[in-house]
Write a protein that binds this DNA or RNA. Sequence first.
DNA 1: CGACACCTTGAAGAGGTTCAAGAAATGTGG
DNA 2: CCACATTTCTTGAACCTCTTCAAGGTGTCG
Lengths: 238, 238
Amino acid sequence: MNSNAVKVACSSCNLRELCMPIGLSEADMERLDKLVATRRRVRRGNALFVAGERFSALYAIRTGFFKTCIATEDGRDQVTGFQMAGEIMGLDGIVSDAHTCNAIALEDAEVCVMPYGRIEEFSREVHALQKHIHKILSREIVREHGVMLLLGSMRAEERLAAFLLNLVQRLHARGFSQSELVLRMTREEIGSYLGLKLETISRTFSHFAEQGILHVRQRHIRIRDTEALRAIVNAQPR
Amino acid sequence: MNSNAVKVACSSCNLRELCMPIGLSEADMERLDKLVATRRRVRRGNALFVAGERFSALYAIRTGFFKTCIATEDGRDQVTGFQMAGEIMGLDGIVSDAHTCNAIALEDAEVCVMPYGRIEEFSREVHALQKHIHKILSREIVREHGVMLLLGSMRAEERLAAFLLNLVQRLHARGFSQSELVLRMTREEIGSYLGLKLETISRTFSHFAEQGILHVRQRHIRIRDTEALRAIVNAQPR
DNA sequence: CGACACCTTGAAGAGGTTCAAGAAATGTGG
DNA sequence: CCACATTTCTTGAACCTCTTCAAGGTGTCG
């Protein structure tokens, strides 16, 4: 961990535009380099944090892919999101000083640990960071509004189409293909996120494949007709 | 509006514990009294803000009841929440300097207008306010996780039971009855929020009434068996 | 009092779930 | 590196919950 520590520098990180405010002065940038205390590796299947754990830091994903999920005593389990490089996790912990969800790595991952105390301190001093933190929190609220719309008003095909378009769009912003992706999660996890059963996910994939909209081989997905997916999402809900 | 302005003082507001950080010094409290620029009245059915409108302030509800909802071009409409006295609205606008949802008053209301610039400024100076703002944002994220769980994994009866318990709990925190409430919204609005059709809401109300769990007369609801409602929410989801 | 919005209830239908079985991929240990 | 166990995925058939459509009832407000 310490051998990594020397390399920790947001100013030279290629994910900077995703994590950090833009247009900072040299001096401010240098300050913010101190935001990241350490990096932490998380092996596939392991938790970065779990519900109930004391909240102490936000995490920026450097590499890897996560899911966040909440579990209730009565055995319900809901995936609340999937996170990829450049995205921030742990926002749920601020309100009560404890995490309320589990963050599980779906592939080997590395995150930047940003102690919350430092974030508070620096964002009082660096105006742009304050704005940035507020925006990150607000963006998550808006994202979840979108999920509520999806869960509340879309049918299975629309949900899966919206999900895939969102995934490729985010992957594309990170330099990946617009039409090809490898799912990091199981059908069951997709189903949990979309409020559907894994069989429905599987069937809907097959259906899209039959129609020539997708090419599906296990977790390898190739989008053959993006416009068709868009049309499905924007279909009149009757 | 100006005749009201003199009365604007968080320090003497009986909703203070709901809106403001606790344990402030006299001096800090005095500062924060300046957070609220004005009050604004909104008549039932009118919007406090609408999607697309430029974001300039957060709003604390003094009196009245609101819904927030998003509408898509393709005619979908999703209620994303119901807000009551002491709750903060407008958080969705921070990320892109524009509101992304509509806030509609479901009864005549009055809100405190807190210009966002002042919030930024004061929260750099008053540590407790900074923390408080972060917590408000984080709380909204956690609330929405709960809605995702509801929409993603509960059936109609469970959703409505959870909804009612949440409503009375919040009303109770404001000094109202634990067992009696008057709904401010239509069946259709409840349905939109819960991802169900208005007929399903109506039927589920009737069903609860038949079972002796509720007494329902239009929008007047009396909860006759809180434990039964809790049991319904916590039922094993098979 | 009439117009309008809101609510209730019934019957038929659709979409998604459940249960079950088998196939494909992945991981593990010899 | 292969055999086996495990996990993940696919597909079919029956079922169930919620939706849709329709009609009538209740309440409210000018």
